[in-house]
């Protein structure tokens, strides 16, 4: 009995505290108004609009007034002859991309961290971060001029390496390599910063002790540096895996050509094509919703696994 009285007392005090907080700090909530309105208007209202995926869109009746068609769009999607190739393209591009673009920044960070010539190291960093700030349009434009037959230096290089002279930019065999290769060129350097930050927080005494014990550089990388950045690696891994179906639109769209479409059509470009080009709003929304849901499920799944195995979790 006493116990519950005490409990009530605590509860009352807590409520009093809360009321006092609100009284003294009501203006903090004014600060939230613009931001929260933004999220409601531009994120939650479109989420509500996702019901379009279950409706036959009619411009006169609007989103909520259009006829309900249930899972028709989804049925059409999974039975479409285009669906599986597109899903496959998206996955394959992502998995190949992941295999290449994920480890390289980690390697770069480990190597840069061991670099002794400080000024040269700074210079390398300045240069390799730079492409990250060039727009995708320019990067694809550069690829195009570098690869133009007979003129571009990359096309000279490929021919010297034994490839047959042709429009490298347009043929399907090269699409994935170009997409991933230019991605590495553009983002790997900048991607290493986050690991360098984690490496900078390693206690130098650990290294000193290891040197006294006779550990070489490779040994120290393996037993000190890599364990130090493992939590960061896992977080980055989770984010990468969670977006396994989210191939960005901008670069793929620029690299597409009628020739390479069989490997370069991915979900995001398909959504754009059927939605805004062909005007099939309901179907396009269904494709987008399918994509979002798969991403969400994958993310939750991987996060669960990670929380169990490594105790690192995104939330």
């Amino acid at each position: 009995m006493r116990h519950s009285a005490e409990h009530r007392e605590i509860q009352r005090n807590l409520r009093k505290q809360k009321i006092r907080f609100l009284k003294n700090n009501w203006d903090l909530y004014l600060f939230l108004i613009p931001g929260i309105s933004y999220f409601i208007l531009f994120h939650y209202i479109p989420m509500y609009g996702v019901q379009l995926a279950f409706r036959d869109f009619n411009p006169l009746q609007g989103i909520t007034g259009s006829d309900w068609v249930g899972l028709d769009h989804f049925q059409r999607l999974v039975t479409s002859y285009q669906f599986w190739p597109i899903l496959r393209n998206t996955f394959v591009l992502n998995i190949y991309g992941f295999l290449w673009t994920f480890p390289i920044p980690i390697l770069l960070a480990l190597m840069l961290n061991q670099m002794r010539q400080q000024r040269y190291k700074k210079f390398i960093q300045t240069i390799i971060y730079a492409p990250n700030f060039i727009s995708v349009v320019v990067v694809v434009g550069m690829l195009r001029v570098f690869l133009s037959p007979r003129v571009g230096f990359l096309s000279h290089l490929f021919v010297a390496l034994g490839a047959k002279e042709r429009m490298f930019i347009a043929v399907p065999e090269f699409f994935r390599s170009l997409y991933i290769g230019s991605g590495i060129w553009q983002t790997a350097g900048f991607g290493s910063i986050i690991y360098l930050a984690a490496l900078a927080s390693v206690n130098p005494e650990l290294h000193e002790a290891a040197i006294v014990d006779g550990a070489g550089k490779l040994g120290r990388i393996r037993h000190i540096d890599i364990p130090a950045i493992t939590p960061t690696i896992i977080i980055m891994l989770l984010m990468a895996l969670g977006s396994a179906l989210a191939v960005g639109f901008e670069k793929v769209f620029l690299l597409q050509s009628p020739l390479n479409l069989p490997v370069s059509e991915v979900i995001s470009t398909y959504t754009y094509q059927v939605g805004l080009v062909d005007g099939d709003f309901g179907f396009s929304t269904a494709v987008g919703l399918f994509n979002s849901l798969v991403c969400l499920v994958l993310l939750i799944l991987f996060n669960k696994i990670s929380a169990k195995v490594t105790e690192v979790s995104l939330w």
Binding site: F39, L276, L296
Partner: peptide, 22 residues
């Protein structure tokens, strides 16, 4: 609550067409 409201939009969105129509 406010943080959740915000972070959730990182993982789920209405997609292209609903945003366009808005």
């Amino acid at each position: 609550f406010f943080t959740f409201l915000m972070v959730f939009t990182m993982y789920f969105s209405g997609g292209l067409i609903p945003s366009y129509l808005l």
